[in-house]
Design a protein around this nucleic acid. Structure first.
Lengths: 228, 228
DNA sequence: CTATGATTAAAACGAACGTATGAATTAAAG
DNA sequence: CTTTAATTCATACGTTCGTTTTAATCATAG
C-alpha cells in the first residue's frame, strides 16, 4: 500500500481552525469561516473530523501531545541528572513553562498562534474541551506538582498548588493577552520589536514566576488554624 | 395578579446575563437562555437595552463603575496619607487587586460571579467589549502604573508594565479558574470549605503577586537591558 | 482499460440565532 | 372614570448555524 496521501486538506483545516479559534473563540468561529479560510469545501470538516467539537479537540491534540511529551522528557532528564536529590524550583518552572513558551518560537509547532489559543481556552473552557484538557494534562501536572513538593519541602502542599495555579494564570495571560490587553494597558514599549519581545518574555516571565513561587508565606489573619 | 414581581425586569436580566455570560461566554449564551432564566419575555432585552451587545456592556458597567471608583478612592486616600512620598508596593497592589478580590465577598456587588466573568472576559475579548474595557480601565490603570513607577524607581518602567500584566493574569486566573481548572489540576485541598478558600485567597495571592513584582530583574542573554 | 475506494463538491436540511413588530396589559396622571 | 405612556407579550422575520445527503471527481489496483 502506498502512503495514503490525504491531500493537505486536513492540515489546512487544522491551521485555519487554530488561527480562527484563537482570534474569535470556539463559539465565535463558524465552520464556514474555517473552510473558507482553508480554501476547502464546507463538508470537509465533517468528513475528516466528524464534527466541530472533534475538530477543536484535534487542533489541541496535535500540539499538546508533543508539548506534554517534551515536558515529561525534560523532567525525566533533569531527575536522572539529579540522582535522587530534589530539583531546583527554577529547573521545574523552566521545564513546565519554559518548554511551553519556547513553542512560540517554533513555527512548526504552532508558534504564537497555538500558545494564544491555549492561554485563552484555559479560561473559557466549554464542558467538552475542559474534560479533554483535563485528560491531556493530568499526568504531566501530577509529575510537576510532585517535583515541586520535593523541591520545596517547607512550603505546605496546598500553597504550592495555589502558586502553580497562579503561575499558570500569569503565563496564559502573558501569551493570550499580548494583543488583547494592548488597548487596555495602553502598551508602549518603544525600543522593542515583536521578535525582541518574544525573546525577552521568557526570562521576564521566569523571574516573575520564581519570585512569586518563592515569596514569603502568607499570614492568615482569621481565627481558624492553618493547615499543612 | 397573584404573581408577585419581586425584582425589576432590568435587574433580573442583568443578573441572569451576568451568570450565563460567566458560565458559557458571550457567544455561547443566547438571549433565549437569558430571558428564560430571568423569567421575562424574549423581547425584554431589546426593549430595555437595545441589543445583546449593549446588555453585555451594561452587565460590566454596573459593576466596573463602582470598582474603579473605589480603586481611585483608595489610591487617593493612600497618597494623601503618604504626603508626597512614594507608596509601598504592597499598598498599591492591595489597592488594585485587593479591592477587586474583596468584591467577591460582597454579594451586593456581584460576588464571585462577576469576578469570574471579568477574569474570563479579559482573555477572550471580542472587539466591542475590548474597546469598552479599554475605556473603562484606562484612567485607573494609568494612575496605578504611575504609582508603581514612583514606588519602584530602580525598576525599568517596561519591566513594571510587564509585571503588572503578569499580576493581572495570575489574578484573573485565580478567580476565573477556581472552577474551570478544578478538573485540570485535580484540585484537592481537603480541609478548606469554599468560604475559607475565598478568605484565604487574598493573602495567598498577595504574597505571590508581591513576590513576583519584587523579584530580581531578568538577565537578557543578548543585548543590553531596556532603558528606564 | 475498468473497478473500487477515497475524497471533494454542491445543495439542502431543520434548528437556533438576534431582532423587529404590533397588540395586549399595566401603572399612573388628569 | 378616561387618557396616556410605559411595559410585557406572542409571534414572526430573515440569517446563520452545524450537519447531512447525494452526486461528481480523483487516485490507484487489477
Amino acid at each position: 500500500m502506498a502512503e495514503i496521501r490525504t491531500g493537505d486538506t486536513r492540515e489546512r483545516i487544522l491551521d485555519a481552525g487554530e488561527r480562527l479559534f484563537m482570534a474569535h473563540g470556539y463559539e465565535g468561529t463558524s465552520m464556514r469561516q474555517i473552510t473558507s479560510e482553508a480554501g476547502v469545501n464546507l463538508a470537509a470538516v465533517n468528513y475528516h473530523f466528524g464534527s466541530k467539537e472533534a475538530l477543536m479537540q484535534e487542533v489541541f491534540r496535535r500540539r499538546l501531545d508533543w508539548l506534554n511529551e517534551e515536558r515529561m522528557r525534560v523532567l525525566d532528564l533533569m531527575e536522572a541528572e539529579a540522582d535522587g536529590k530534589p530539583l531546583k524550583p527554577s529547573q521545574i518552572v523552566d521545564g513546565f513553562f519554559g518548554t511551553l513558551l519556547r513553542m512560540a518560537g517554533d513555527e512548526k509547532r504552532g508558534g504564537v498562534t497555538f500558545l494564544r489559543l491555549l492561554g485563552r481556552t484555559l479560561t473559557e473552557p466549554s464542558e467538552f474541551i475542559r474534560a479533554f484538557l483535563a485528560h491531556e494534562y493530568k499526568e504531566v501536572m501530577d509529575r510537576y506538582k510532585e517535583a515541586l513538593f520535593r523541591a520545596l519541602p517547607d512550603v505546605p502542599k496546598a500553597e504550592i498548588v495555589w502558586r502553580f495555579h497562579f503561575m499558570l494564570g500569569a503565563t496564559s495571560y502573558a501569551i493570550a493577552g499580548t494583543d488583547a490587553l494592548r488597548l487596555v494597558t495602553d502598551w508602549q514599549i518603544e525600543d522593542e520589536d515583536s521578535t525582541d519581545r518574544l525573546d525577552r518574555l521568557v526570562p521576564r516571565l521566569m523571574s516573575f514566576l520564581l519570585g512569586g513561587l518563592r515569596a514569603p508565606l502568607p499570614q492568615f489573619s482569621d481565627t481558624t488554624a492553618a493547615s499543612n
